[in-house]
Each structure stands twice: as structure tokens, then as C-alpha cells.
């Protein structure tokens, strides 16, 4: 299709697009984001009793409204991970790191974040991790700079 020499003649111009939105976060997502600003992780109790984090407004199985906020973690356990050797400029860390799903203590589900672990040899499923909070927090998931391996006992 485009394999001909004509491809060299194609005109090019930069195009930067944005889809900007402003949203009201409401009582559930808003509580989660406010909690992050206060260095607290907030989950929510689902219809079957399990604690879901990040909290969701509706039960994923029954769809009923959920309202019972529950403080969890903030330390927890890695449930799966992936090692990034070459971080993208938009990634949370500018050095090799692990993506992790972390199940905070007291929660029954896991949340995504980055883990600053130095090398893949230092990461394993089931390891204990804790958040490294930013000094300046604004009520966003990025108020957690990343997770780090939990200090030993």
C-alpha cells in the first residue's frame, strides 16, 4: 500500500490533540481522592461484603449503590507485576520499575501502581509493599509517588 517511493514525498505536520474534560468526582471517587491527599487509602464494602479498592460507586455484580467506605492499607501485598526496563516519559518513574497490582491490607481487590524496587530480582508476587507519598498532594492517584518494598520487621 504505502511501500512505494512516494512515501518520501508525503507532507507531514505535527498535530497535538487534547480531549479536556472537567468532572465532579462525587461521594465515592471524591472520598478516595481526598483520602490520598490525607495519606489514607479508602475502599468500599461491596454487596457481598468484600472490600473493593479503588472504591466503586456501584456493586460490580449486583449494580446496587455502595456507600460504606472502609479505610484500608496503605501497605499491602503484590498480586501480580511486570518489569519495565525502558520507562516512557509519561510513566510514574524515570528509572526501571515494576508495574504492580497491590492488594492493600483489609481489602479484597488490588489496585494498580508503580513499584520502585531497583531490579526485577527484588520483585515477587506476594511481596509486601507500602506507598511512598509525595510531599505536595492534591487529591490524585499520583499523590502516591510509587510503592516501595516494605521495611523488614
Amino acid at each position: 500500500m504505502s511501500d512505494g517511493a512516494a512515501a518520501d514525498d508525503v507532507l507531514r505536520a505535527p498535530l497535538v490533540i487534547e480531549y479536556p474534560f472537567r468532572r465532579t468526582t462525587g461521594p465515592v471517587i471524591g472520598a478516595f481522592l481526598t483520602g490520598l491527599r490525607e495519606q489514607v487509602l479508602i475502599g468500599i464494602r461491596g454487596a457481598d461484603g468484600r472490600v473493593i479498592v479503588p472504591p466503586v460507586e456501584y456493586d460490580p455484580v449486583t449494580s446496587e449503590d455502595l456507600t460504606e467506605l472502609v479505610e484500608v492499607g496503605p501497605a499491602g501485598e503484590v498480586t501480580t507485576w511486570a518489569w519495565v526496563t525502558d520507562p516512557h516519559p509519561k510513566h510514574p518513574l524515570d528509572r526501571p520499575f515494576a508495574w504492580v497490582l497491590v492488594r492493600p491490607d483489609g481489602a479484597d481487590t488490588a489496585m494498580l501502581h508503580a513499584l520502585d524496587a531497583g531490579s526485577p530480582e527484588a520483585v515477587r508476587t506476594g511481596m509486601r509493599v507500602a506507598p511512598r507519598w509525595r510531599a505536595e498532594r492534591e487529591g490524585a492517584i499520583t499523590d502516591i509517588e510509587c510503592f516501595v518494598p516494605e521495611a523488614g520487621p
Binding site: Y19, F21, R23, T25, I29, F32, L33, P54, T79, T80, W81, A82, W83, V84, H88, K90, H91, P92, W99, V100, L101, M111, L112, H113, A114, T125, A140, I141, T142
Partner: peptide
């Protein structure tokens, strides 16, 4: 990275987890 824009805008998308990284998490699990 474009595909990260389909993710939860509050708790996931601001971390920019690219599509390959998410598939890697699934694969490890």
C-alpha cells in the same frame, strides 16, 4: 500510550500504564 486513555480516568489513566505493560501484568498473573 493512546490506549491508556480508555482506562479509569481517576485511579489508572494518570499513571499512563501502556497496553503492553497491562498485558504483561495479566501474563504474570
Amino acid at each position: 500510550m493512546v490506549m491508556t486513555r480508555q482506562l479509569d480516568p481517576y485511579s489508572v489513566a494518570p499513571l499512563w500504564p501502556d497496553a503492553v505493560s497491562l498485558a504483561a501484568l495479566q501474563t504474570r498473573a
